[in-house]
Simulated scan of single mutants.
Amino acid sequence: MKMLIVYTHPNHTSLNYAFLQSVLKGSSENPYITDIKVIDLYKEGFNPLLVFNEEKRRRDMHIDPNTEKYRNQLTWADKIVFVYPIWWGRPPAMLLGYIDQLFASNFAYKDKKGLLPEGLLKGKSVVCVSTMKGPTHYPLLWLNNAHKVLMKKALFNFVGIKKVKFFEFGNMESAKGKQEKKLEKVYNYFKQLDH
C-alpha cells in the first residue's frame, strides 16, 4: 500500500505535528505499507489562492503545471491521510485551498448526465486525523456534523472515494485531553492497518 500524508499546520511543535509523527511511526512499522510520502503544505509554501483570468481558466485546472506534482502524488497513492486542526468548524484555509485546486474536474471527477458526476479517484481510501480545542462532540451537537459531512459527502464521496475514516479529537488544549492516549490510538491504528 502506498500512502500519501497531507500535513497542514504551521507549527512543528504543535500537537498536530505529534499526530503526524504517530502516523509515520505506526506506518513505518506496518508491513502492508510499502511507500510513504509526506506533503507539508505550510513548509512547502503551497499557494492556496485560486486564480482565474484570461491566461488561467478553471476548466484547465486538471492540467495546471503548478499543481502537476500534487496530482501525481494523489494518483500514486492508495491511501491518503490528512492531518490538520479544525478551526471554526472546518479545516484550515490552506488545506481547503489545496482541495480547491487538486480535486478538479477531469482529474478528480468527470461531469456526466444525471445528478452526480463520475468519481475518478475510485479505489482509494482516506483517513482524516484532526484536532480541536472544543469538546469532542461539539461538531456533532452544535454544527450538525458539518466537518464530517463536508469532508466525506461533499468531497470524498463526490470524487469516488467511499472508504473514509475519521479521528476527530476534541479538548486538545486541555490538561485533561488525554493527548498521549490519543497519539497512541493513532499509532496503533496505522501500525495494524492492512488495507
Rank of each mutant, 00 (worst) to 15 (best):
E44I: 07
G45M: 09
G45V: 07
F46C: 15
F46D: 07
F46V: 12
N47Y: 00
L49M: 09
L49C: 11
L50Y: 03
V51I: 15
V51N: 10
V51T: 10
F52C: 05
N53C: 09
N53A: 12
E54V: 10
E54C: 06
E54W: 09
E55F: 12
R57L: 15
D60S: 09
M61E: 14
I63C: 00
P65Y: 06
N66P: 03
N66R: 15
E68Y: 14
R71K: 12
N72S: 10
N72M: 10
N72L: 12
Q73H: 10
Q73G: 08
L74I: 11
T75Q: 06
T75V: 05
T75E: 07
T75P: 03
W76I: 04
D78E: 09
K79P: 03
I80P: 02
I80A: 05
I80T: 07
V81Y: 02
F82G: 03
F82V: 14
F82N: 04
V83D: 01
V83H: 05
P85W: 07
I86T: 07
W88S: 13
G89W: 08
G89Q: 11
R90F: 08
P91I: 03
P91H: 09
P92K: 03
A93R: 01
A93H: 04
M94E: 13
I99W: 04
I99M: 07
D100F: 00
D100T: 06
L102P: 07
A104K: 07
S105G: 03
